[in-house]
């Protein structure tokens, strides 16, 4: 009886010990160069296969007014905490300009009114956070492709980088500033908008006033808020952490279609 008990204890000890070793192994594998790279490379496989299926034009689902979330959760920065942004806000963004530069023939500096005068698109779409929640909202804005056409891309242009007004992590070197990037396939997608209105009203501060990105076939962290500058680049590896976005530099995949 007693020996059975201790044998059972030994077995339980062995199993939990083996479990702990396996878990520690998984942690170590996550941080190792080889397996860590393999883990991250599955992103390529996912992206290439989704792109194969998606093609250029297939649209994200659009919903009806009846489907709107009663409360659309505001995530990340709720209000940028900078002198510069607060001044722009006080003035109703009359002094705000969207800079468009980088690999373009015609750099642009657009006011909110100028953007609103361009043909717009309105869509009701689902916002999926990487954490697992979803919210449905209505967005109105200028298709990004239209702005890129106005600026005329130079040869070698591959990515569009969005520089934001908010610092999600306060750092000395400014590396906590929010930024994002997408490639030209998503940039020219008909539902990819620079949105200035949400649910029929001016974009609220918590949701990125005066202008935010909507790139509907990807997750929430790609939907950069508080846009200040759009830069067209051949590659983003020299920018901040080199992975193409604030959250990407902190471990999320650049391709957020899944």
């Amino acid at each position: 009886m007693k020996s059975g008990f201790s044998r059972r204890r030994m077995l339980a000890g062995l199993i939990s010990g083996a479990g702990a070793v396996l878990l520690a192994g998984c942690d170590r594998a996550t941080q190792s160069t080889g397996f860590g790279a393999l883990l991250r490379n599955s992103e390529r496989l996912t992206m290439e296969s989704q792109r194969l299926l998606l093609g250029r034009q297939s649209l994200a689902l659009e919903y009806s007014v009846a489907d709107l979330s009663p409360v659309f959760r505001a995530n990340g920065t709720q209000a940028p905490d900078s002198e510069e942004y607060n001044q722009l806000l006080e003035n109703g963004f009359a002094d705000w300009r969207l800079q468009v530069d980088g690999l373009v023939q015609q750099p642009l500096s657009l006011s909110l009114d100028e953007l609103k005068r361009l043909p717009s698109r309105t869509q009701i779409t689902r916002h999926d956070c990487v954490e697992g929640w979803s919210a449905i909202g209505q967005w109105q804005g200028v298709p990004l492709g239209r702005i890129l056409d106005l600026a005329r891309l130079k040869p070698g242009a591959r990515y569009v980088v969005f520089h934001c007004a908010d610092e999600l992590e306060v750092t000395f070197d400014g590396s906590g500033r929010y930024y994002e990037s997408i490639d030209l396939l998503d940039a020219y997608h008909p539902q990819t908008l620079l949105a200035y209105a949400m649910n029929g009203k001016a974009l609220p501060v918590a949701h990125g006033a005066p202008l935010r990105l909507r790139v509907e076939r990807q997750l929430g962290y790609k939907q950069a808020k508080y846009l200040m500058r759009i830069e067209v680049v051949p590659a983003f590896d020299t920018l901040w952490g080199g992975r193409g976005g604030y959250w990407e530099d902190r471990g999320y995949d650049w391709y957020a279609g899944i």
Partner: peptide, 18 residues
Amino acid sequence: WLTIPSYYDLGAARNWHF
């Protein structure tokens, strides 16, 4: 002790999962 990784890391967990 039930999660991979054992510490909080959503990005890494997604990589493992996919």
